[in-house]
Amino acid sequence: MQKAVPFTGQQRADHLLIAEMVAPGSRVLDVGCGDGALLKLLADTKGVDGRGVELSREKVNLCVKSGLSVIQGDADRDLADYPDQSFDYAILSLTIQATRDPKTVLANLLRIGRRAIVSFPNFGHWRIRAQLLFSGRMPMTPNLPEPWYTTADAHLCTIKDFVDLVEIVNAEVEAAVAFNAKGQRLPIKNSLSLQNLLGEKAVFRLKRRA
């Protein structure tokens, strides 16, 4: 993993961890780039050649006004149009759970980029398990703040679920970090079960198997 990116302002914790996994000067595609905060961070700290895809026209306009190269597009429909290995990294930050077909989206990321980086909320965290056990209702937490009937998160998963999906799409994990709401890495090594229990979110860097 690359050296830590210094924290300035109010960057999202997963953005900082993603930036550590990106090599300087790389070509990057940020899918579901939102307001462009990650693209700007990568440009400022890693000098990347960044491109973005975002579903919201309003957010695309904000990105363009900030000088970022972002187009409107849908991760479920439009990734198939990108050539193989046209980027060094294809990134999906806190978005895969909102896609209609996560398996196909992940496969496309690994086809488009020489590496794929994915962050997501972990539905296996102990607070979520406890809410399900004691309330019998869909959990709401700071990481999952919306009720089930308004959230776009149609395909929530656990860290273990995501590792299974990585195998299904014939990829391997190069680096992975489980972390809490403050962005602190969990001091856990070689224990997927503990990461799944204690990690509120996770970031994975993947590559296709040879």
Rank of each mutant, 00 (worst) to 15 (best):
S56D: 13
T45L: 12
N61G: 06
D49H: 14
R51I: 00
A37Q: 13
P83R: 13
V60N: 03
Q72S: 06
L42S: 08
V48I: 15
K46W: 09
C33H: 07
A80M: 13
G67A: 07
F87N: 07
F87H: 14
C33I: 12
D44P: 11
R57T: 15
T45V: 14
P83Q: 12
R77M: 13
Q85W: 13
L62H: 13
V64Y: 03
D35M: 03
D74E: 03
L55W: 00
L68D: 02
G52L: 05
G67M: 05
R51A: 01
A90G: 05
Y89P: 00
R77F: 07
L62E: 13
L41E: 02
A90C: 15
V70C: 04
G34W: 03
A75Y: 00
S69D: 14
G73L: 05
V48Q: 07
D88L: 11
S86C: 14
A80N: 10
S66W: 01
P83H: 14
C33S: 13
G52E: 05
L62P: 01
E58F: 07
G67D: 10
G34A: 01
A43Q: 15
L55H: 08
L41D: 04
E54G: 04
G36D: 02
G34L: 04
E58N: 12
G73N: 12
C33R: 02
Y89H: 13
P83V: 03
P83L: 05
L39D: 11
L38E: 07
E58G: 03
G34S: 02
A43M: 14
D84L: 14
G52V: 11
D74H: 04
L38V: 01
S69Y: 03
A90H: 12
V64M: 10
R57L: 08
A37E: 12
P83A: 06
D49V: 05
S86L: 00
F87L: 03
S69H: 10
G52C: 06
P83F: 09
R77V: 06
Q72P: 00
G36P: 03
V53K: 09
Y89F: 15
R77I: 02
D78R: 05
D78C: 10
S56I: 10
L68A: 05
D35G: 06
L55Q: 00
G73A: 09
T45P: 05
D49Y: 07
R51F: 04
C33D: 04
V60L: 08
G50R: 04
A43L: 05
I91E: 09
A75V: 09
Y89E: 12
F87T: 08
L41P: 06
D84Q: 15
V70K: 00
R77P: 10
D74I: 07
V60R: 04
G50Q: 06
Q85K: 15
Q85G: 08
K65C: 04
A37G: 05
L42G: 01
L41S: 08
E58A: 14
L68I: 12
I71C: 07
D76P: 02
A80Y: 11
E54R: 02
V60E: 11
R51P: 10
L79M: 08
K46Q: 14
L39F: 01
L55M: 11
D76I: 09
G50A: 13
R51H: 12
A80C: 13
D81V: 13
Q72D: 10
L38N: 01
